[in-house]
Design a protein around this nucleic acid. Sequence first.
RNA 1: GCCGAUGUGGCUCAAUGGUAGAGCGGCUGUUUUGUAAACAGCAGGUUGUCAGUCCGAUUCUGACCAUCGGCUCCA
Length: 574
Amino acid sequence: MDNKLDNLRHSAAHLLAAAVMELWPNTKRTIGPAIENGFYYDFDFGEVKISEADLPKIEKKMHELVRGWGTFDQLQETTSREANQYKQELIDELKQKGEKITYYKSGNFIDLCAGPHIESKASDILKYFKLLKVSGAYWRGSEKNKMLTRIYGTAFPSQKELDDYLNMLAEAEKRDHKRIGREMELFMFHESAPGMPYWLPKGMVFYNELIKFWREEHQKRGYQEISSPLINKKQLYEVSGHWDHYLENMFISETAEKETYGLKPMNCPNAMVVFGSKTRSYRELPLRLGDTDCLHRYELSGTLNGLLRVREFRQDDAHIFVSEDQIEQEFKNVFEITEKFYSVFNMPYRFRLGNRPDNLMGDTETWDKAEKILEKIVKDSGHEYFVGQNEGAFYGPKIDIMMKDALGRDWQTGTIQLDFQIPRNFKLDYAAADGSQKTPVCIHRVIYGSLERFIGILIEHLAGAFPTWLAPVQVAVLPIADRHLEYARSVESALKSADIRAEVDDRSETLSAKIRDAQTQKVPYMIIVGDKEVEAKKIAVRTRGGRDLGQLDLQKFLKDIKIEVEGKRIGKTI
RNA sequence: GCCGAUGUGGCUCAAUGGUAGAGCGGCUGUUUUGUAAACAGCAGGUUGUCAGUCCGAUUCUGACCAUCGGCUCCA
């Protein structure tokens, strides 16, 4: 915590704790740091139940208290102060580490704290805060510990910045992909299959478009597509290591013959089987095997969240088998694909380098090597990156693609993983140029990540206004009166024969109503046909952006929209 | 899984210890409309599920199911 905003928020957390202690004196307070967009404080309220209905009361108390607060002063104390069990645990730990124990005092409130805090008087600058939500959180993040009550809030140096942030939250709420998905009839969920989306006709249109784009771009780059079994015998996962390292996330099935099968949570084991299905030569490398098979992962019920966290999904997956000296070049190739895809969606991104996790497979030597190679690669890429400690896959380190959406939120989408382990487990080899048998290295990579998750993010990023190439309905044809229906249908069929997704709105509604509905459905183009158009054999075009393009020649419009679709121009209409 | 909240027709929401209403949507009819909502009528709900209390439950209690917000940020 080294910047002013964090100090402000950290101080706000103290204020929150002070207010809570006044209102519920028997509460045991624990810790309260500044976090990315605000702060929180964890409390043990004992028998008392706190809900969001209590927040206004706490906020009011905070405003009241802060009026009497001056600066935050560090107390140097040689003896520890009275402490509850949580604070005592922290103090004991600090003593063991030989660290200095300090307290901060603000008003009459004293808390164990390393600082730093705001330097000016709290009554002057600690005014623009808001408590946002209440939730449970385990003491020290471990589910083995007691569940505490966490109160989240945010604070800013000015009312305007606070308002802007709250408006951003409201905007995010409006863009919620679950809401848009329902309104646009893209996908749905049913309680009979929690966490597993149903894709409705309109959602399936762009699901397929995304896969089509993936297929085209990868075929060009030497990828070959495969598909493999969704359910495999336990033995496959024992060899791959998933049975030891990933079992708690797998759906398992017993058959009448007492065989144990598992639904595949990842495609890698099957890709290994394909590689090993015949004698391989170095001449085949890099061997790029892609697939979009369905995967199932048993995620905890409480973690499910619309399309962003699901139990059934597909990935734009590929396993690339390379020799060691091809690793670097192949990563460059994948980076080029990444750049292509994310620029098409107008999504800025950075990399996260994930190092070895605790639950890892393989020997230290190989991990050292893999991590060293990957670190060099990500540095050489010249792309912005940061390190995520322990974020690697159990079989190797990885580079994650972290994208930033239109509201400035970060999301993890794609991942590119370096794996020396699983090919070894499967005893894969190829004939090298020198005649020896060598083990290939595998690069696991997804660019979209999960299609489901990517689509969820895309919906929120674009607020449902898909670029024309992805829009479920690209053109709405709106006849003004019934006598224009025939002409409207001829326009529709001309568009359809040119592979443009067009629909006639043949309801006996006013033009305004038809426009309104097309507008809410975020249809990129509306073609309006009335007496004038029938007469002139033209079409009147209106864009989703509200622009009236006037009367156009149908053939000209067709040509332009085709160019736009082929060029996959984002967010821009003609 | 754990903490908290929520669950009423397709959607958004109202109401009540005496078996539920509205708007939008849907259907039908009228209207034939020129750039973000024409008018009228009709249909549609064992109030998430299962138990319990009660003369009576959708309303109270419990269990379960599902959904939403969190459970990584270390004084």
